[in-house]
Amino acid sequence: MSEELRPAYKRILLKLSGETLMGDQEYGIDPRVIGRLAREVTELSRIGVEVAIVIGGGNIFRGAGLAEAGMDRVTADHMGMLATVMNGLAIQDALERLGKFCRVMSAIKINQVCEDYIRRRAVRHLEKGRIVVFAAGTGSPFFTTDTAASLRAIEINADIMIKATKVDGVYDSDPFKNPNAVRYERLTYEEALSKHLGVMDATALVMCRDNNIPLRVMNIFNEGDLMRLVTGEPIGTLVERG
């Protein structure tokens, strides 16, 4: 472990949206973005942080969107789960090119490309210093990847869940539409739910609240903020039990 940087958390769950991987593109994966993310995650691992990642699939396929357009919801959600597996494999490749061991674990059986999700095996991977990417959501339709991230954070006993977004925290209104939007430094889960702030869906928030998992919402595009957050700086917005 580095003598200069001391992590404030031993084990984290990093939630990335699929759209994060697009960069400035309209679709797919920007190699520059995924390369930078891999470098930042690798640096966390090098200072002794156990890192688990949940990735969405919105850069490839959005199940909810096609369901709204008339596709069978279960079929659409299964397609969205497969998109998260594709993103997980891309993250694994980027990490392994940096010399970091990584395991993709899928909630649906797809054994020829990645491992099945088994909680004890996932924890063992983390204990050995491997980065673990949880793919395919919860394995069931009608659940978001935010809910999957909350579930996995609870199952692996993460010290904190970090939701990486394109804004630097939670605001009282959309900061892209309202230049006077106010950013919260801290919220309780009850406030986030009652004010409908769009932090995560209600199921994900309630799971974190009931299992006492703190949440930090940050801007993943601010290079270096992830390391600063994990080493104890008050980056973004903290959401926790009141």
Rank of each mutant, 00 (worst) to 15 (best):
S2T: 15
S2L: 13
A8L: 13
K10G: 15
I12C: 03
M22A: 13
G23T: 06
G23A: 03
D24Q: 14
D24E: 15
Y27H: 13
I29A: 06
D30W: 06
R32D: 15
V33W: 09
G35A: 12
G35R: 09
L37S: 07
L37H: 00
R39G: 11
V41K: 04
E43M: 14
L44E: 07
L44C: 05
L44M: 09
G48N: 02
V51D: 11
V51F: 08
A52R: 02
I53E: 00
N59K: 05
I60M: 11
F61R: 05
A64P: 00
G65V: 07
E68Q: 14
G70Y: 08
M71G: 01
V74P: 06
A76S: 13
A76L: 08
D77N: 08
M79Y: 08
L82H: 01
V85E: 06
G88N: 06
G88P: 10
L89A: 06
L89F: 00
L89S: 05
A90M: 10
I91E: 02
I91W: 04
Q92V: 05
L95R: 11
L98K: 10
F101W: 10
F101I: 11
F101T: 14
R103C: 00
R103W: 00
M105H: 00
A107L: 03
I108Q: 08
K109N: 12
I110S: 13
I110M: 13
N111V: 00
Q112A: 11
V113L: 14
V113N: 05
V113I: 15
E115G: 09
Y117R: 03
I118R: 04
R119W: 01
R119K: 15
R120F: 13
R121Y: 07
G129D: 08
G129V: 04
G129W: 02
R130P: 02
I131E: 04
F134Y: 14
F134G: 10
A135Q: 03
A135H: 04
A136G: 08
T138Q: 06
D146L: 10
A148T: 15
A149K: 01
A149Q: 01
L151C: 03
A153W: 02
I154A: 09
I160E: 09
M161R: 08
K166F: 04
K166R: 14
D168M: 04
S173H: 01
D174F: 06
P175L: 03
F176G: 13
F176V: 10
N178M: 03
P179A: 06
L193M: 12
L193I: 14
K195V: 03
H196T: 10
D201V: 11
A202Q: 15
A202V: 12
C208K: 05
R209C: 03
N212K: 15
P214H: 04
L215K: 05
L215Y: 03
L215D: 01
R216E: 03
R216S: 15
V217K: 01
M218K: 07
M218W: 06
N219W: 12
I220F: 10
I220Q: 09
I220G: 10
I220Y: 10
M227I: 14
R228T: 02
R228K: 15
V230G: 07
P234S: 13
T237I: 09
E240N: 02
E240H: 02
R241W: 02
